Amino acid sequence: MKITIIAGARPNFMKIGPIIHAVQKAKNEGKSIGYRLVHTGQHYDKKMSGDFFDQLEIPAPDTNLESGGGTQAEQTAKIMIAFEKELLDNPTDLVLVVGDVTSTMACAITAQKMQVKVAHVEAGIRSGDWSMPEEINRLITDAITNYFFTTSELANENLRKSGVKDNQIFFVGNTMIDTLLKQRPNFIKPPVWDELNLKEKEYIVMTLHRPANVDESSKLKELMQEIIDHSNEIPLVFPVHPRTAKILEGLGISHPRLHMIEPLSYLEFNYLVERAKAVVTDSGGITEEASIMNVPCMTLRDNTERPETMDLGTNELLGTDPKAIQPAMEKLFSGEWKKAKEIPMWDGKCAERIIETLLKLES
């Protein structure tokens, strides 16, 4: 069985790493399985250097389609054209896509039009917000997938409601957590730890990148001010995306406790998260990691596609109203924040379950 594995953006590589390791393990055990790793080039990230692959023990891609840049429509078209050629040159039994980026949707469509089966890892998650490009990508990918690998019972239910049959749905867990649990002993202390003399549970980590939070300057300014005013005089460490940094600079936002730093590597960033008092974010993936590490997490969004991080994890959805910051911070500093419970199947063995399932299905 030959699998073509797709990755298009940095978070995808954390998700496919464990799957590749599981394929290699099965092959070493004598199973008839192999893979080809295709990087669509959707995102170019200078931190995706050799170090990134070495740190996470991910092999270099077999090919890079170099489809980055342009509008979403242009990007989709470039990926589809390049991936069609890739499949003609390198036939496969199955295309495996992860998550919800443009590459996920574009490669799923291309594969199905070439009559190649598609497996979707992280299928069935929904935010209900069609203004998010990721939600459209999820809906389209799940409409044309053959095998659905899910992270929660709620995702299973979402798929059933849309007409997917039970024998196509496989509740396996979360490959992002496979990576987190494997790499947790290897977290790297970033230089900023000593530079700022940070102490465990005495600082807050921030990440903001969604247009709803960073594009409207008056709202962003108010949001930042509320966080600064109600964070109990402890340092705020903010690895800033260059785009967000430019906006913040233009607004003149600065404070002695606000430390805007360069984006960090995966192992450095999670070193900070694990030891933080709390995380303030609008990212989905960080809510999963914070929940597993039992770190209080405040999400500045009106919806989430990962409700298990709220029901069983440490995540609370604050919405995008800056006035929601103060009561959340008061709850945090009074010691009343909820503790994480065990999230079913988020145990580090998700990728093994995926490969075991595929071998049975395709035997």
Rank of each mutant, 00 (worst) to 15 (best):
Asp194Asn: 15
Lys182Asp: 10
Asn213Val: 01
Leu181His: 03
Leu208Glu: 00
Phe170Leu: 04
Thr207Cys: 01
Ile177Met: 03
Thr179Lys: 06
Val214Lys: 08
Gly163Asn: 08
Thr179Ser: 13
Leu198Arg: 00
Lys165Arg: 08
His209Glu: 00
Ile177Phe: 10
Ser217Gln: 11
Asn167Met: 11
Pro211Arg: 05
Met206Leu: 09
Ala212Arg: 12
Val164Thr: 07
Ile169Met: 06
Leu196Asn: 01
Leu181Val: 03
Gln168Thr: 06
Ile169Ala: 10
Leu208Met: 08
Pro211Gln: 10
Glu216Cys: 09
Ser218Tyr: 09
Lys165Ser: 15
Tyr203Pro: 02
Glu202Thr: 09
Glu202Trp: 14
Trp193Ser: 00
Ser217Glu: 05
Leu180Gln: 07
Phe187Val: 09
Ile169Pro: 05
Glu195Cys: 08
Met176Gln: 13
Lys219Leu: 12
Ser217His: 06
Asp178Tyr: 04
Val164Cys: 03
Ile177Glu: 11
Asp166Val: 09
Lys182Val: 14
Pro185Ile: 10
Arg210Met: 00
Val192Leu: 15
Leu196Glu: 03
Thr179Gly: 03
Val164Pro: 05
Val214Ala: 04
Lys165Thr: 15
Thr207Asn: 01
Ser217Asp: 03
Asn186Trp: 09
Glu202Tyr: 06
Val164Trp: 08
Pro211Tyr: 05
Pro191Thr: 10
Asp166Gly: 07
Lys189Phe: 03
Asn197Glu: 08
Lys199Cys: 09
Thr207Ile: 04
Val192Cys: 14
Phe170Met: 06
Ile188Arg: 05
Arg184Thr: 07
Asp178Asn: 07
Ser217Asn: 07
Met206His: 10
Pro190Asp: 03
Val192Trp: 06
Asn213Ile: 00
Gln183Asp: 14
Asn186Lys: 09
Glu202Phe: 10
Arg210Phe: 00
Leu198Ser: 01
Asp215Val: 11
Glu216Met: 10
Thr179Met: 06
Asp194Ala: 15
Asn197Gln: 10
Gln168Met: 07
Pro185His: 07
Gln168Gly: 02
Ala212Lys: 14
Asp194Met: 09
Ser218Leu: 10
Ala212Phe: 08
Arg184Asp: 13
Gly173Met: 05
Pro191Val: 12
Ile169Val: 05
Arg184Ile: 04
Gly173Ser: 12
Phe171Thr: 13
Ile188Phe: 13
Met206Ser: 06
Lys189Arg: 14
Lys165Trp: 04
Phe171Asp: 01
Asn174Met: 14
Leu181Ser: 11
Asn167Lys: 14
Asn167Gln: 13
Lys199Asp: 04
Ile204Pro: 01
Gly173Pro: 14
Ile169Asn: 06
Gln183Glu: 15
Leu180Asp: 02
Pro185Arg: 06
Gly173Phe: 09
Lys199Gln: 14
Phe171Asn: 15
Glu195Ser: 07
Lys201Gly: 04
Tyr203Ser: 02
Asp194Trp: 13
Lys199Thr: 14
Ile169Tyr: 07
Pro190Val: 08
Asn186Tyr: 15
Pro191His: 10
Pro190Asn: 02
Asp215Leu: 04
Asn213His: 01
Asp166Tyr: 04
Pro185Tyr: 08
His209Ile: 01
Phe170Thr: 10
Pro190Trp: 05
Asp166Lys: 14
